[in-house]
Simulated scan of single mutants.
Amino acid sequence: MNQPTTEKLRWNTADLELFPDDGKRYEIIDGELFVTRAPHWKHQRVCVRISNTLDNWSQMTGLGETVTAPGIVFGDNDNVIPDVAWASNERISQSLDEAGHLTAAPELVVEVLSFGHENEKRDRELKLKLYSSQGVREYWIVNWRQQQVEVYRRERGILRLVVTLFNGDQLNSPLLPDFNCAIASLFI
């Protein structure tokens, strides 16, 4: 007796045009649709602080640009909106499409964890895997509740956790020459 096959619905970039502009975040990872509501105030506050710190450094160095909630279209089945991204001038000039979305990985992606097991799992597993496979060079996962930052760096072709920073630590990166940020300043 043949068992009926159940085919999993796969979403693509074109499907995103069907959704309303309702303040929710619609992302597709490996053809799976994720819908999240607006994040907590403190989540957004941390995003602004990280973005401002990176943007100030970017303006001083002229090496690239920082953007909050950019659209990144890796392909038809992978379309995400990280909290913060930094891309070099070269990457921007080579991979910004007519709609203003990156079509290649920025060098740095930052996700600030949203409340809920599924949200955390998406950032720690699905997005980590996606960003790793797409060539992101550094990925910061920020936990505003625990006031810590996990830094993943590309080693041997994949993103690996290299350090977890806490309130008394300084955040710097070989990717960002002379960048330095006190972790505590992100959470005050």
Results as ranks from 00 to 15, higher is better:
residue 70 P to H: 03
residue 143 N to V: 02
residue 67 V to W: 04
residue 82 P to D: 07
residue 181 C to Y: 02
residue 184 A to R: 12
residue 46 V to I: 13
residue 24 K to L: 12
residue 127 K to L: 14
residue 67 V to M: 09
residue 89 N to F: 00
residue 73 V to P: 07
residue 132 S to C: 05
residue 124 R to L: 10
residue 78 D to T: 08
residue 168 G to Q: 05
residue 116 G to W: 06
residue 144 W to Q: 13
residue 72 I to M: 06
residue 133 S to A: 14
residue 35 V to G: 11
residue 125 E to Y: 07
residue 176 L to R: 08
residue 87 A to D: 04
residue 114 S to K: 05
residue 163 V to C: 05
residue 71 G to T: 07
residue 10 R to S: 13
residue 18 L to W: 01
residue 12 N to A: 09
residue 69 A to T: 04
residue 110 V to P: 02
residue 163 V to F: 01
residue 8 K to T: 13
residue 123 D to L: 03
residue 71 G to K: 04
residue 102 L to H: 07
residue 93 S to A: 11
residue 124 R to F: 00
residue 136 V to E: 08
residue 175 L to Q: 13
residue 17 E to V: 10
residue 105 A to Y: 12
residue 53 T to L: 07
residue 129 K to R: 15
residue 162 V to P: 01
residue 166 F to G: 04
residue 19 F to N: 13
residue 120 E to I: 06
residue 121 K to S: 04
residue 188 I to M: 01
residue 102 L to R: 07
residue 157 G to N: 08
residue 146 Q to I: 01
residue 41 W to N: 07
residue 22 D to K: 11
residue 5 T to L: 04
residue 50 I to F: 15
residue 178 D to E: 08
residue 27 E to P: 14
residue 16 L to A: 11
residue 94 Q to Y: 08
residue 106 P to L: 10
residue 118 E to Y: 05
residue 6 T to I: 10
residue 51 S to F: 12
residue 96 L to N: 02
residue 188 I to R: 06
residue 102 L to C: 02
residue 98 E to D: 12
residue 172 N to D: 10
residue 29 I to Y: 08
residue 90 E to D: 13
residue 63 L to M: 13
residue 153 R to Q: 15
residue 144 W to S: 09
residue 174 P to Y: 12
residue 153 R to S: 13
residue 88 S to H: 04
residue 3 Q to Y: 12
residue 114 S to R: 05
residue 88 S to E: 07
residue 158 I to V: 14
residue 151 V to E: 11
residue 95 S to I: 02
residue 136 V to G: 09
residue 81 I to L: 01
residue 85 A to T: 13
residue 81 I to C: 06
residue 46 V to P: 00
residue 175 L to H: 05
residue 178 D to C: 01
residue 24 K to T: 08
residue 154 R to I: 02
residue 141 I to N: 05
residue 57 W to M: 11
residue 168 G to S: 06
residue 123 D to A: 03
residue 16 L to N: 13
residue 5 T to M: 02
residue 31 G to R: 00
residue 17 E to Q: 15
residue 114 S to G: 12
residue 135 G to W: 08
residue 117 H to I: 09
residue 14 A to I: 03
residue 25 R to H: 14
residue 66 T to Q: 04
